[in-house]
């Protein structure tokens, strides 16, 4: 009986948390879909639009590598990607778009973006980089 009571308390707590989350969504952070209808390198840019727009704020004149990553299903597991790229001094900014399966990495406009190097860094965290799109901001 105690277990059922505990389960009920847990569900109630999570429901409240989910409600808070929806309120947060209404304030402009939608976590579902929102694909950018922009073409980059002949391919649709499939990222969370609002997250992408927030990311590129202040990056005028820079370039952004949009890396498709497989196996990036959990925030906790993706933390290592941020840690690995933070050691690279040419990286200006980084974000992880879990819903789109993308890692966004900002570089200076003159930086030669090496996909093989990005693949190695992503693999060192246990995920696989499968595609790269580069967008000039």
């Amino acid at each position: 009986m105690k277990n059922f009571y505990l389960l009920f308390v847990m569900i109630a707590a999570v429901y409240t948390s989910a409600q808070d989350h929806q309120m947060h969504d209404m304030e402009g952070h939608n976590h579902e879909g929102h694909l950018h209808d922009t073409m980059v390198d002949g391919k649709l840019l499939e990222v969370n639009a609002e997250r992408f727009d927030d990311f590129v704020l202040g990056l005028e004149g820079k370039q952004v590598a949009i890396v498709s990553v497989s196996g990036m299903v959990c925030d906790f597991c993706a933390r290592g990607i941020e840690k690995t790229f933070s050691k690279d001094k040419t990286v200006l900014k980084l974000d992880v778009d879990l819903s789109g399966g993308k890692v966004l990495i900002a570089f200076d406009k003159d930086k030669n973006i090496d996909f093989e190097d990005i693949k190695k860094k992503i693999l060192s965290n246990g995920q696989n980089a499968t595609d790269l799109q580069i967008m000039k901001i």
Binding site: N3, A18, H29, H31, N48, F76, D95, V96, L98
Partner: peptide, 29 residues
């Protein structure tokens, strides 16, 4: 119960069934 984004609080509701030979019991919780 909800899909959080990077940096959010993430939540999982789980059920675990565990057997320990020392007590020779299955516990599901």
């Amino acid at each position: 119960p909800y899909i959080g984004e990077y940096g959010d609080l993430h939540t999982w509701l789980m059920v675990k069934a565990k057997h320990d030979e020392l007590t020779n019991e299955w516990n599901t919780y």
